[in-house]
């Protein structure tokens, strides 16, 4: 229980992670306080999703420590890890709803698996959660009958079913229309305030994200490039963040896949 403060929900210290010989994260130090909403941004393949994997214990770092609620996640046994995960909710990129269960049963799944509540009580809770995401009347639909935005909202209702202390969002806005993006963004904020959760959002969507987070962490080349408030992002002249915020094709993140010079390759023949 090294240097655990009551206000620290998640604390990463000098975390390194690599897939085989491909380094992904290289010395990450990050502390997230209780009740905070933070965004993790960065280029594709920059280790954002890996960071969520480390926090949830799905991945183990090669070195460094990952503390969640004061528990050293990489050292937990399966049963302890599952104990911790009952307090962590995760919204997957495309929702990951169980395709063989309808909306109601998807949201009821965590209650049926993790609690011994009677079925009437589960029904009440499920309807409550579905009402919160505005899909109570869609309870009998199958996931295949839902639009992308609706599926994401059902998945959100399922993820917060057990009132987790930590919510992890993996690209919650990807592939959604602007209206759905707005709805999901507002729901994330509202759930966070209502349930006092700590939220970590991995995203590319700068506009929506800046509106709802307390802090933005920008990853680049396996390290934390900047850690700043959302207002700073808009005004900073950091070239990497500017390229990201303004959607410039070329900059610190090159347009071309690294390789040989174009002319020298053309001249080969």
């Amino acid at each position: 229980m090294t240097s655990f403060h009551e206000s620290e929900m998640i604390a990463l210290k000098d975390v390194c992670f690599s897939y085989a010989d491909r380094p992904i994260l290289n010395g990450i130090d990050l502390t997230i306080k209780r009740g905070e909403i933070i965004a993790i941004m960065g280029g594709s393949g920059g280790g954002k999703t890996t960071l969520l994997g480390l926090i949830s214990g799905r991945l183990k770092p090669q070195t460094g420590s990952v503390l969640v609620k004061g528990l050293e996640v990489p050292n937990l046994r399966q049963s302890e890890l599952y104990g911790l995960r009952r307090k962590i909710g995760m919204l997957f990129q495309f929702g990951a709803l169980f395709t063989d269960l309808n909306v109601f049963d998807n949201v009821a799944f965590p209650y049926r698996e993790q609690t011994n509540l009677p079925e009437e009580m589960i029904r009440t809770l499920v309807l409550l959660k579905l009402e919160a995401v505005g899909l109570r009347s869609a309870k009998n639909l199958m996931p295949a009958e839902l639009s992308g935005g609706m599926a994401r909202r059902v998945a959100l209702a399922r993820a917060v079913a057990l009132d987790p202390a930590v919510m992890l969002y993996d690209e919650p806005f990807t592939g959604l229309d602007p209206i759905s993006v707005g709805i999901i963004g507002r729901l994330i904020k509202r759930l966070n305030r209502a349930l006092g959760m700590t939220s970590v959002i991995v995203t590319h969507d700068l506009n929506e994200t800046l509106r709802l987070v307390d802090r933005v962490v920008v990853l680049s080349q396996g390290k934390i490039h900047r850690d700043m408030a959302p207002e700073e992002i808009r005004s900073t002249d950091d070239p990497f963040i500017r390229q990201f915020a303004d959607g410039l094709p070329d900059g610190p993140v090159p347009f071309h896949y690294p390789g040989r010079d174009y002319w020298s390759e053309l001249m080969d023949q």
């Binding site: 949830s56 799905r58 399966q78 599952y82 104990g83 995960r85 009952r86 962590i88 909710g89 995760m90 997957f92 990129q93 495309f94 990951a96 709803l97 169980f98 395709t99 799944f109 965590p110 698996e113 993790q114 998945a155 399922r158």
Partner: peptide
Amino acid sequence: GLMRATEQLAAMDMMAVDPMSR
């Protein structure tokens, strides 16, 4: 295979339900 590809197994694992036994 499809449940894995669509992260349904990962989602289950995150809900502290072992996909192996479930």
